[in-house]
Amino acid sequence: MATAPSPDSRDHPPAVVAVKERTEHPHAPDHPVDVAHAVPVRHPLRWLSVVVLAVLAAQLGHFLITNPNFEWGTVGAYFGAQVFGQGIATTVELTVVAMAIGTVGGVFVAVGRMSENRVLSTVCGAYVWFFRGIPVLVQLIFWYNLSALLPRISFGIPFGPEFISAETNTLISPWFAAILGLGLNEAAYMAEIVRGGLLGVDHGQTEAASALGMGRARILRRIVLPQAMRFIVPPTGSQVINMLKATSLVSVIALADLLYTAQSIYNRTFETIPLLVVACLWYLVMTSVLYVGQSFIERYYARGSSRNSPQSFWDFALFRRRTTRKAGPEPVSETPS
């Protein structure tokens, strides 16, 4: 290295500094450095945490295996039992129907809230306020006891003649009460999710579609909702999982879902813990399936949102690497003339 003193050199005599650096630092500028074999930073705390967690895991394993109160044999015997099949069917049925009501209702309430009609938007806002403000357990019990408030339910012209009329107790079965409670409550939550999604879509999309002569309903269905789905699907996935778990509340109105089935058996046999473990395992199985399903749906609605084309279903299912569609280099002379 030429060490000729430059005009702006500092106070130290430059020649001395250069010699010192060369002897103390083997990687002077004329010795190129290769970082390929650099020593990584050590993380002793990470190793400590691994050790702590390993000890805790071993403790948990030991507890699960050696504690006789789990009665793993009983758990195994009940896990595949047919009674649970019916309970699971009821749980799934309630989840699907209540979510369907909640989603469809939620879209209507959300669109209503965003309406220019003040009365409609206020009513829809009040709906959300009311049903989100009362615990769903209270709502379930309320619907179940509706007959105490309204002994008969009838349909007809308001303040006029009745067409159909029925005893509330025959109409509102525990199943129907559960569906009403869970579905109407869900609609309020879904309305907020859908509204958030609709507001998340750039207003330019609506303008462009209007300029093409598309009507409001078509714009909502073809342009805004499909794009809002990207914002709506992830929270809706958690809502489905929450709903699956919330269905366990219907056990208080004597509806034979998964939890109620477990309870009704252990009330007879006093095998409380093993049966609760069976219920836990089944809930975990069902929520795990939902997690996987949710990721498929998210993938589908993410199409067009990034420069990469979406991964196909089979690539995902078979753990294949993402097949990125190459757009290729831009032709230089593609400007029409």
Partner: peptide, 20 residues
């Protein structure tokens, strides 16, 4: 809406439909 059919418009920010 009907009147807009015959009047085309091009926007500053394109406003293409990204999901299509």
């Amino acid at each position: 809406t009907r009147q807009r059919r015959d009047i085309g418009m091009v926007f500053q920010h394109f406003n293409l439909f990204p999901h299509q």
